[in-house]
Write a protein that binds this DNA or RNA. Sequence first.
DNA 1: CTGTTAGCGCGTTCAG
DNA 2: CTGAACGCGCTAACAG
Lengths: 327, 327
Amino acid sequence: MRAGVSPMTVSRTLAGGTNVRPDVQARVMAAVDELGYRRNEMARSLRPGHRSGLIGVAITNLGNPYYGDFAFGVEEIAAKFGRRILLGNSGEDLGREERLVRDFVGRQVEGLILVPASQENQHLQPREIQNMPLVLASRMVEGVRADSIVLDDTGGSRRGVETMLKSGYRRIAFLGNATSVQTVNRRFAGYSAALQKAGLTVETSLVAMGQQDVRTAQQATSVLLDSPNPPDAIFATNNRNAIGALQEIGRRVTGRAGAHPLPALLSFDDFELASLMPVRVVIIDHDPRELGRRAAQLLFDRLTSESPFDAPNATIEMPTIVRVARP
Amino acid sequence: MRAGVSPMTVSRTLAGGTNVRPDVQARVMAAVDELGYRRNEMARSLRPGHRSGLIGVAITNLGNPYYGDFAFGVEEIAAKFGRRILLGNSGEDLGREERLVRDFVGRQVEGLILVPASQENQHLQPREIQNMPLVLASRMVEGVRADSIVLDDTGGSRRGVETMLKSGYRRIAFLGNATSVQTVNRRFAGYSAALQKAGLTVETSLVAMGQQDVRTAQQATSVLLDSPNPPDAIFATNNRNAIGALQEIGRRVTGRAGAHPLPALLSFDDFELASLMPVRVVIIDHDPRELGRRAAQLLFDRLTSESPFDAPNATIEMPTIVRVARP
DNA sequence: CTGTTAGCGCGTTCAG
DNA sequence: CTGAACGCGCTAACAG
């Protein structure tokens, strides 16, 4: 040791200096400063009874500002609890998700927050994740011991579509992502419930599913708008589909004289600049950052309780608000 | 051990099974499956000559889709190299940044990628970060041994402003974030250079700096537009200021008859739906995800070289393209 | 083919 | 007040 003392003395000094002579402490600190010595947190957390201070967070698409905001909320709460975030992007791919989860567990994270890519649950069973606390966000998975925080997908969609119907729209297309994503099915249920209540039926030619990114959503919109009997409104079930739809609408807005009027948009998920769109926009609104905060809070509720698995699994459904962004 | 063997046999089996009898391997694997056993990566990486497989990434604002995209790019490359991301949000706060960096170092990350919040460099000195490879992204810091990847801030801004001048705009306001952020100064330099070249001078009443989020940017825009001699165009030096400006513009667009015409927008950073805006929009364009990829690539270039510090520090300046998004 | 020893960095426990 | 021994989980090197 640079200060001519044993490692033990350094440890004690860095731990607060109890039972170390002040002058020795000073020497130790000087050496620490000079060498830029830092305690090895990996080794520290290896000691019995110590945790890693790490939370594993796996989301499906970091490129979607929605999930960036979600991660932001998670990080905010985690920082408050002195934890760090191990972040992974599954890209809506189950294999990648499995690898992420395995790796996080191997790295001794204290808990997992996951936006699941599918309904697959084998890799999420207690044994697979070493009985770690698990929080599922945005989407639930059947048959898993986990807390879940989701949105009022069905109700929000129903009320959103009802709002459109009240405004006089009759041919509302459905633009959704892959059906392996649980939310899209719930949102579709709300969509058909609203139509049914209004005495309308779901028209399969108006339903397009499977768009996972902006580009494919734009293409699907283009097909819809070019169809012989195009929609007068589009229900985009997430942020990516909404942006894609609007980009196609934007492409057609210029130089457009008297062709078909452009459709209005109903979007699940808010997005920036919604109020400046050239068509009517209604938002089924909620705050992804708050979703992240609440997900993290659920996790820390368990982590900070003495018996993490006494409490039954919570399923929180966050409300959504239907809001006219652009009349 | 559940399978009645020593830890060593388990280790060998999990490592590929060399020198373990097949039937013993089977027993071990059965026990592993049953118990959900995972190797402890923290303990593994504690062994001499082993690295943690972790990269520390600190960005300034995860709530900005720009940085979400940046993180996406970093994660993409890191995953390719089998590394995980430890993600932290500094919130443009130096203290938080310092704590993040210290913590990352303590956790034995293999390298750091940082969007620095300021020009402060003390906490980034080699000794402070244990001689770890460091990559600065988007913003540089003087007096630091690090690779940097930045944008052509000055040139891009100059060309952007020139484009606006060519289109006939004469009163171009400058909407920038805090001057502690390096890029804003570089972008201001490009702005004034273009004005000067056109025989114009910077009008201080048209310069608003310090807006770090959408809300304050919107307020600043409101003040500019209400001034006696308002701008005919606004140069927003980043994504957040552009969105704020547009939100204020959007607020004024409805019911607007013959008052002042609304200003055009020049934005450093692209944003979704730029082409659908109600005013002319010119973008000084570049890809934040690619920025993230390149930053990560710079880091792995060093990490995979035998002598990580032989190569001199690289400073890459990524080009920007001036593009009319909404004529 | 399998087990033992040793050591990575830390701090609790127990001796000085 | 300070140091030495021990063990956290892992595996390279060495015995057997």
